[in-house]
Computed example of a mutant assay.
Amino acid sequence: MLQIGMLIYPSMFDIDLIGPQTFLSRLGDAEVFHVWKDRAPVVSDLGLAYQARHDFASCPENLDILFVPGGLKGTIPAMRDPAVIAFLADRGARAKYVTSVCTGSLLLGAAGLLDGYRVTSYWMVRDLLPLFGAELVKERVVIDRNRITGGGATAGLDFGLTLASVLRGEDHAKTLQLLVEYDPQPPFDAGAPERAPSSVAAGIRQRRADELQAAREAATAAARALGKV
């Protein structure tokens, strides 16, 4: 049975977790569970509470898949949390697949798990990945050996299907896609900075300038601890 450990943490973005879990929980012969430093409820960015099945100490040592969701509001303090970074570094060193969606890749990078790998992240912070020795690839889902990373938020659905295909084959992944009727037809073509109106992208960056600066500072400090800067 596959052991799939999904990190949860305060202020994570819900869809980053739920999107992938929608598919991973339907792999068959797989145990999917949430992990946090303790078993107290973890409140997400949307105000929903999640319960960890395992704390860091009880989490299986040899995971088949280590997964980290994103959510910049929660990722920044998590990058600064030695317990989180130590847990990811430990389990990630042995996991068969080390994976993330959105800003979760910043946590993997801070744990020293992306050095020399091609990876992606949320569009507003993906330029920070080279601080950790990673090669930035501006794609929806990136596979490099046993590292699989997805872009922001809704990319978790594509990530989940991709990982399902890797683990169970393309036919199984297609079955899951139809099962949940994943047939995206957005009303606008503004889901990537390269295609969205420049004024929209600039407005988002302006509104989140303080948060983006905090992310850069946290990532730089983590990279410095790894001897990368």
Rank of each mutant, 00 (worst) to 15 (best):
76 I>F: 00
48 L>M: 14
82 P>Y: 05
18 I>A: 15
24 L>K: 10
77 P>W: 03
41 P>Y: 08
88 L>P: 02
104 G>P: 09
75 T>K: 02
95 A>S: 12
64 D>A: 02
42 V>P: 11
101 V>C: 12
52 A>G: 01
68 V>R: 00
40 A>Q: 15
84 V>M: 10
56 F>Q: 07
104 G>W: 02
45 D>I: 05
17 L>K: 08
52 A>E: 09
17 L>T: 14
94 R>Q: 09
71 G>N: 05
20 P>L: 01
47 G>W: 04
26 R>K: 15
28 G>T: 12
76 I>V: 15
19 G>T: 08
104 G>V: 12
107 L>S: 05
109 G>V: 03
17 L>I: 11
20 P>Q: 06
50 Y>S: 10
106 L>A: 00
81 D>T: 13
86 A>T: 09
95 A>Y: 06
42 V>C: 08
61 E>K: 12
18 I>Q: 14
71 G>T: 12
70 G>K: 09
102 C>S: 15
50 Y>Q: 08
90 D>K: 14
92 G>W: 03
61 E>D: 15
57 A>L: 10
27 L>I: 11
63 L>V: 06
64 D>I: 02
23 F>N: 10
91 R>S: 05
65 I>S: 04
65 I>N: 02
66 L>T: 07
42 V>A: 05
53 R>G: 00
49 A>F: 08
52 A>K: 07
77 P>Q: 01
101 V>Y: 03
19 G>W: 08
57 A>D: 09
19 G>V: 10
91 R>F: 02
70 G>L: 10
40 A>G: 05
110 A>S: 09
35 V>E: 00
80 R>Q: 15
62 N>F: 10
102 C>V: 13
35 V>L: 04
43 V>M: 07
85 I>N: 06
15 I>G: 01
87 F>N: 00
67 F>S: 09
18 I>T: 15
39 R>G: 08
74 G>C: 10
25 S>L: 11
93 A>N: 07
109 G>F: 06
48 L>P: 03
91 R>W: 03
96 K>Y: 00
37 K>W: 12
41 P>E: 07
